[in-house]
Protein backbone atom coordinates (compact mmCIF):
# COMPACT_ATOMS: atom_id res chain seq x y z
CA UNK A 1 0.00 0.00 0.00
CA UNK A 2 1.54 3.30 -1.11
CA UNK A 3 -0.31 5.56 1.35
CA UNK A 4 0.13 3.76 4.66
CA UNK A 5 -3.04 2.93 6.53
CA UNK A 6 -5.27 4.59 3.89
CA UNK A 7 -7.69 1.68 3.67
CA UNK A 8 -8.30 -1.92 4.71
CA UNK A 9 -9.74 -4.58 2.42
CA UNK A 10 -12.66 -6.19 4.24
CA UNK A 11 -13.55 -8.80 1.63
CA UNK A 12 -13.47 -9.61 -2.07
CA UNK A 13 -15.99 -11.25 -4.34
CA UNK A 14 -16.54 -11.91 -8.03
CA UNK A 15 -19.60 -10.30 -9.62
CA UNK A 16 -19.94 -11.39 -13.28
CA UNK A 17 -16.86 -9.92 -14.99
CA UNK A 18 -15.84 -7.67 -12.09
CA UNK A 19 -13.83 -8.26 -8.94
CA UNK A 20 -15.42 -6.31 -6.09
CA UNK A 21 -13.37 -5.27 -3.05
CA UNK A 22 -15.21 -3.95 -0.03
CA UNK A 23 -12.82 -1.57 1.75
CA UNK A 24 -12.94 0.58 4.84
CA UNK A 25 -11.44 4.06 4.58
CA UNK A 26 -9.36 5.00 7.61
CA UNK A 27 -10.07 8.53 8.84
CA UNK A 28 -6.92 8.39 11.00
CA UNK A 29 -4.63 8.07 7.97
CA UNK A 30 -1.80 10.63 8.08
CA UNK A 31 -2.76 12.10 4.69
CA UNK A 32 -5.79 13.81 6.28
CA UNK A 33 -3.52 16.07 8.35
CA UNK A 34 -3.08 18.00 5.12
CA UNK A 35 -6.16 17.17 3.03
CA UNK A 36 -7.55 19.19 4.60
CA UNK A 37 -6.74 20.46 8.09
CA UNK A 38 -9.88 19.86 10.20
CA UNK A 39 -11.81 18.65 7.15
CA UNK A 40 -10.80 15.15 6.01
CA UNK A 41 -11.55 14.64 2.30
CA UNK A 42 -10.22 11.64 0.37
CA UNK A 43 -7.67 12.86 -2.17
CA UNK A 44 -8.96 11.74 -5.57
CA UNK A 45 -5.50 10.47 -6.46
CA UNK A 46 -5.43 8.25 -3.35
CA UNK A 47 -8.70 6.66 -4.43
CA UNK A 48 -7.23 6.14 -7.91
CA UNK A 49 -4.16 4.54 -6.31
CA UNK A 50 -6.45 2.28 -4.25
CA UNK A 51 -8.04 1.10 -7.53
CA UNK A 52 -4.58 0.44 -9.03
CA UNK A 53 -3.64 -1.58 -5.94
CA UNK A 54 -6.86 -3.65 -6.15
CA UNK A 55 -6.20 -4.18 -9.88
CA UNK A 56 -2.67 -5.34 -8.99
CA UNK A 57 -4.20 -7.97 -6.70
CA UNK A 58 -6.45 -9.12 -9.55
CA UNK A 59 -3.49 -9.27 -11.96
CA UNK A 60 -1.16 -10.88 -9.43
CA UNK A 61 1.48 -8.31 -10.38
CA UNK A 62 2.29 -4.72 -9.49
CA UNK A 63 0.64 -2.36 -11.97
CA UNK A 64 0.83 1.35 -12.63
CA UNK A 65 -1.18 3.81 -14.69
CA UNK A 66 0.10 4.21 -18.26
CA UNK A 67 -2.73 6.36 -19.50
CA UNK A 68 -6.16 7.52 -18.40
CA UNK A 69 -8.88 7.78 -21.00
CA UNK A 70 -11.26 9.31 -18.49
CA UNK A 71 -11.61 9.55 -14.73
CA UNK A 72 -14.73 11.18 -13.32
CA UNK A 73 -14.99 12.12 -9.66
CA UNK A 74 -18.66 12.82 -9.13
CA UNK A 75 -18.98 12.70 -5.34
CA UNK A 76 -16.78 14.24 -2.69
CA UNK A 77 -15.77 11.15 -0.70
CA UNK A 78 -14.75 11.54 2.93
CA UNK A 79 -13.70 8.75 5.30
CA UNK A 80 -16.25 10.03 7.81
CA UNK A 81 -19.28 10.09 5.50
CA UNK A 82 -18.21 7.01 3.51
CA UNK A 83 -16.38 4.72 5.96
CA UNK A 84 -16.96 1.65 3.74
CA UNK A 85 -16.98 1.69 -0.07
CA UNK A 86 -16.79 -0.88 -2.87
CA UNK A 87 -13.96 -0.88 -5.40
CA UNK A 88 -15.21 -2.63 -8.55
CA UNK A 89 -12.46 -3.66 -10.98
CA UNK A 90 -12.74 -5.15 -14.46
CA UNK A 91 -9.29 -5.89 -15.84
CA UNK A 92 -8.66 -7.22 -19.35
CA UNK A 93 -5.13 -8.22 -20.38
CA UNK A 94 -3.93 -7.01 -23.80
CA UNK A 95 -1.55 -8.84 -26.13
CA UNK A 96 1.22 -6.34 -25.45
CA UNK A 97 1.29 -7.09 -21.72
CA UNK A 98 -0.72 -4.06 -20.67
CA UNK A 99 -4.20 -4.17 -19.12
CA UNK A 100 -7.41 -2.39 -19.95
CA UNK A 101 -9.05 -1.26 -16.72
CA UNK A 102 -12.59 -0.16 -16.04
CA UNK A 103 -13.24 0.55 -12.40
CA UNK A 104 -15.55 2.36 -10.04
CA UNK A 105 -15.64 3.33 -6.40
CA UNK A 106 -19.12 3.47 -4.95
CA UNK A 107 -21.77 1.70 -2.98
CA UNK A 108 -24.48 -0.47 -4.52
CA UNK A 109 -25.80 1.52 -7.51
CA UNK A 110 -24.11 4.79 -6.49
CA UNK A 111 -20.84 5.63 -8.24
CA UNK A 112 -18.49 8.19 -6.68
CA UNK A 113 -15.50 7.74 -8.99
CA UNK A 114 -15.17 6.01 -12.36
CA UNK A 115 -11.89 5.26 -14.12
CA UNK A 116 -11.04 4.01 -17.59
CA UNK A 117 -7.32 3.49 -17.98
CA UNK A 118 -4.51 1.42 -19.43
CA UNK A 119 -2.31 -0.13 -16.77
CA UNK A 120 1.26 -1.30 -17.27
CA UNK A 121 3.34 -3.75 -15.29
CA UNK A 122 5.33 -1.77 -12.73
CA UNK A 123 8.51 -3.73 -13.52
CA UNK A 124 8.32 -2.79 -17.16
CA UNK A 125 8.84 0.90 -16.48
CA UNK A 126 11.21 0.90 -13.51
CA UNK A 127 14.24 1.24 -15.76
CA UNK A 128 12.90 3.81 -18.21
Amino acid sequence: MLIKNYYTILDRRTDSSAEVFRVSLNKDCDVYRGHFPEKPVCPGVCNMQMIVECASLVAGAGLRIGSIKQCRLTTLVTPVDYPVVEVRVTLLPSDDGSYHLEATIGQAADVYLSLKAELLKLDAIAND
Partner: peptide
Amino acid sequence: YIGELRKFKITAL
Protein backbone atom coordinates in the same frame (compact mmCIF):
# COMPACT_ATOMS: atom_id res chain seq x y z
CA TYR B 1 -11.34 19.47 -6.25
CA ILE B 2 -10.51 17.32 -9.25
CA GLY B 3 -13.74 16.73 -11.16
CA GLU B 4 -12.42 14.88 -14.18
CA LEU B 5 -9.22 13.73 -15.85
CA ARG B 6 -9.07 13.14 -19.58
CA LYS B 7 -6.42 12.02 -22.06
CA PHE B 8 -3.75 11.56 -19.41
CA LYS B 9 -0.45 9.88 -20.23
CA ILE B 10 2.19 8.92 -17.71
CA THR B 11 5.25 8.04 -19.78
CA ALA B 12 7.82 7.64 -17.00
CA LEU B 13 8.01 7.73 -13.22
